[in-house]
Design a protein around this nucleic acid. Sequence first.
DNA 1: AATGAATGAGTATTCATTCAT
DNA 2: TATGAATGAATACTCATTCAT
Lengths: 200, 200, 200, 200
Amino acid sequence: MNIYSFKFVPLKLRDDKKIQQVFEAALTLVKQKGLAGITMSEIAKEAGLATGTLYIYFDNKEKLINQLFAACREASAQCYFKNYDAAAPFKQGFRTVWMNILRFRVKNFEEVVFMDQCYHSPFINDCTMKLTKQMIQPLFKLIERGKEEGALKEIETFSLLTFMFGCIHEAVKNAHYSRKNLKEKDVESLFAMCWDGMKR
Amino acid sequence: MNIYSFKFVPLKLRDDKKIQQVFEAALTLVKQKGLAGITMSEIAKEAGLATGTLYIYFDNKEKLINQLFAACREASAQCYFKNYDAAAPFKQGFRTVWMNILRFRVKNFEEVVFMDQCYHSPFINDCTMKLTKQMIQPLFKLIERGKEEGALKEIETFSLLTFMFGCIHEAVKNAHYSRKNLKEKDVESLFAMCWDGMKR
Amino acid sequence: MNIYSFKFVPLKLRDDKKIQQVFEAALTLVKQKGLAGITMSEIAKEAGLATGTLYIYFDNKEKLINQLFAACREASAQCYFKNYDAAAPFKQGFRTVWMNILRFRVKNFEEVVFMDQCYHSPFINDCTMKLTKQMIQPLFKLIERGKEEGALKEIETFSLLTFMFGCIHEAVKNAHYSRKNLKEKDVESLFAMCWDGMKR
Amino acid sequence: MNIYSFKFVPLKLRDDKKIQQVFEAALTLVKQKGLAGITMSEIAKEAGLATGTLYIYFDNKEKLINQLFAACREASAQCYFKNYDAAAPFKQGFRTVWMNILRFRVKNFEEVVFMDQCYHSPFINDCTMKLTKQMIQPLFKLIERGKEEGALKEIETFSLLTFMFGCIHEAVKNAHYSRKNLKEKDVESLFAMCWDGMKR
DNA sequence: AATGAATGAGTATTCATTCAT
DNA sequence: TATGAATGAATACTCATTCAT
């Protein structure tokens, strides 16, 4: 007797969409109540899942937070060089990147808040932090090009980058909290300040 | 069985020093493990008190955090205009204030971390937040003076302030995390960028 | 999206072999981690099945344990009178049975452990326990024959049986845990002690 | 000003009585429902404590079980040589010890059940097990004396001990489960069997 | 005021069982 | 039948707060 046969086998895949749901739920809640205020069951509820289901996708709370952090980091880094034209003059390229960063932070404010809260949290481990630092390498290159071309001040690259991020970050935060949308004009003023600060 | 015993103990009255101890303990712990990771008994232990004693000085955890937040806010605002000479030229006055802010943030990094973590936390209530905004009124005046004198760009005062804080804040954070002390030279570069960004 | 796929799979009908697999898996795990430490999904995994499949073969955890208990009980009882010659002199017959019991317990140590752990467990129900007692009836008869023939002490049959089981049980357990195999010589010593204790 | 003074200081001791309460509660429950069936909150309830209080006295469930195991082990070992007269003839001394063991097991049946269930449990760690083995050293000595005096069979000491424990253990268990109290007569029969089995 | 044990509601996590495929 | 993801009730454990001393 042949003991083999064809058979319909259900292909059950762990659903990537669910991971996304959980991430969104967590971001929403962190924005509302801070990292200190979220619970696993709330996340599950907000994501439309049972508590137990969360643990199919994430080993525990710490890992959930770490994975979300990693996802945010990647999403954020991914957008930096969108529409960037290496052949264009430096200022234009810089402006493109600068705008990408600003736009990402405005649109994904929840992620920004979340990442902010993650520093010093008991959830984020060193490994996660290290990877984060690697992500900004391409920006380093950009700034260095600016210095080589004589467009930017002769200051440590890291300091220039920090300056740039600081301007953007704080502006986005304050715009959000004072509930004023950043308008075209505001963005231009901000870019002007940032550029004037960095340019030679 | 007699459960009381005599003991030679330091005579302590309800004293403000204890409040300070508690504040310091809380700051230390928040820097180490984030707002999400601290407990009342840990704070008590770090402050050298019994858990119950904490509740003699603070009604509950929320109030403890809020009071600490208020204290940090005040300490921070208090230093802004130290050595500020209203009669001196604008740039000099601006520079004094700018340096005060930077120095405070470097020296009191734990407080900066704590305040950062407090945004979005379930502990800080609206009332606390509103008072915080009032604190920066004198800075508003300063910036407006700069604009009137034609020293600063004609941009909304709030945006200029935000820009200034953003530069400082991010620089201090990054210096701390990359474990490089900000040196004289770095501070000057940073001030230069900030000033070039804001000046007309 | 089609979530079904064809797969070349072994055609398995509801089969007793699987029950056996599950039993063996459960015994292995109970020996490793005790009755308190096993879960249905672990059993399934160890047996090479999906969790859900377990529930096709067993109504629930309690029933699984009970059925395994019953199976162990039967297997154990079945061996008692192997090679027993009713016509031979009592001591010879007794020795045969005694050796059967000892050998079974050595060979099937996992089952012994499992049954031991089942007493007081929340899984084994009264019905299962009662049936167990019936299983030793033939041993009762044997001991009574011994007494009738004047070979054994005039002590309650149940006590004599208990004595016999106690000797064997403890010896097997200790041999296992001290990782010394019971050798021919050890077994003979043990039998001698047991016989000397019971004989008139 | 003298900052030291005498003061009444409450001496709050963690209450050893509570540990005893917890132990008793745990034993009761293990006897009723087995090691697999007990929960921390049940133990707390049975002991008349809040769940949280349990965790003041025991780090976690595993440690609670291990400490209880250690306590039972000690209590059991402590009684072995009660009223033992080293100067008396061997058989008399042996009988004293044998009776002590039997009596302990009858009176403290719950502890016996508990210890039985602990083997193979995920709770008892190796360290606990090793200590247990050291506890029976004095019994080793006793048996060896018996062999030296020619009173006992020339069999490995460990085997003789195992035999003795096996007889007692099984007898006590069966008496308990068949709800017959061991009477004077039964005990004498059992001792006779055990002695006849071991004696030269 | 000070202490720290005690409390119990709340949180993370597990696991027997179900169910869609 | 077989699968394993999904469920949610149950369980281990934590922690803000209280209270007897």
